[in-house]
Simulated scan of single mutants.
Amino acid sequence: MTAVYEWVRNITYYMIFITVVGNLLADSKYEKYLRFFAGIILILLVLKPLTGSLRLDERIAYLFESISFQKEADDFKEKLWGMEDERLQRVMSTYEEAVAMDIRGMADTAGFSVRSVKVTIETDRDSPLYGHVTDLYMKLGRQKEENAAGGGWNAAGVSGGGTDSGPAEIQIEP
């Protein structure tokens, strides 16, 4: 008779424990897993007098831990991919800035006054042009010596009062 009382007491304590845990669980994304495994363990508790020697509760506990671990690993993997995408975006941004500085330096070396440079690099990993410069926008002025004298060319190539016959030529190779 004491075995029956102990059996009922274990079931009652378990139900109280699961109710408390369910109420304390702040994140509801684990609630369905908790209810699933709580139900399985409750079934094992109810059937324990018949299956006491099979150690099913230990096997179920092991399965619960392994599934919980897998879920946490998947969440961690998603966070890692998010951080990788953010890092890649920063690398591409730095790459665009470096290319813009190189182009500015080449134009300065050729004797042009660079007003602005904007470089766009393909960031789609599936594209065959991934990592290549896809767009380049530059605003150039006339040669530096002539800018100091008051002349210059605007972005549309219209003279600003200099005596030169036309804009100098820059060759851009892909």
Score class of each variant (00 low, 15 high):
residue 74 D to S: 08
residue 77 K to L: 14
residue 1 M to P: 02
residue 53 S to M: 02
residue 113 S to P: 05
residue 41 I to L: 09
residue 2 T to D: 09
residue 139 K to R: 06
residue 126 D to Q: 11
residue 7 W to M: 08
residue 155 A to V: 01
residue 8 V to G: 05
residue 62 Y to H: 10
residue 78 E to M: 06
residue 128 P to D: 14
residue 171 Q to S: 03
residue 91 V to I: 14
residue 125 R to C: 08
residue 64 F to T: 04
residue 96 E to L: 04
residue 59 R to H: 04
residue 109 T to F: 15
residue 114 V to S: 00
residue 1 M to A: 04
residue 61 A to C: 09
residue 85 D to K: 10
residue 156 A to Q: 04
residue 103 I to S: 02
residue 51 T to D: 13
residue 108 D to M: 03
residue 10 N to S: 15
residue 11 I to H: 05
residue 165 S to Y: 10
residue 138 M to P: 03
residue 98 A to I: 15
residue 5 Y to H: 11
residue 27 D to Y: 08
residue 39 G to P: 07
residue 20 V to W: 12
residue 96 E to R: 05
residue 144 K to I: 12
residue 162 G to T: 10
residue 115 R to I: 09
residue 45 L to S: 04
residue 58 E to H: 01
residue 97 E to M: 14
residue 29 K to W: 10
residue 79 K to V: 11
residue 145 E to A: 10
residue 1 M to Q: 07
residue 151 G to M: 04
residue 1 M to R: 04
residue 12 T to M: 09
residue 26 A to R: 05
residue 168 A to R: 03
residue 158 V to S: 08
residue 100 A to Y: 07
residue 139 K to Q: 13
residue 109 T to Y: 15
residue 7 W to I: 00
residue 4 V to F: 13
residue 170 I to R: 03
residue 137 Y to H: 09
residue 53 S to N: 08
residue 33 Y to Q: 11
residue 43 I to H: 04
residue 8 V to F: 14
residue 8 V to E: 14
residue 106 M to S: 14
residue 57 D to W: 02
residue 44 L to G: 04
residue 132 H to Q: 11
residue 104 R to H: 06
residue 46 V to Q: 02
residue 76 F to H: 02
residue 46 V to K: 03
residue 66 S to T: 14
residue 16 I to P: 05
residue 139 K to S: 11
residue 83 M to F: 14
residue 61 A to L: 12
residue 108 D to K: 08
residue 59 R to G: 00
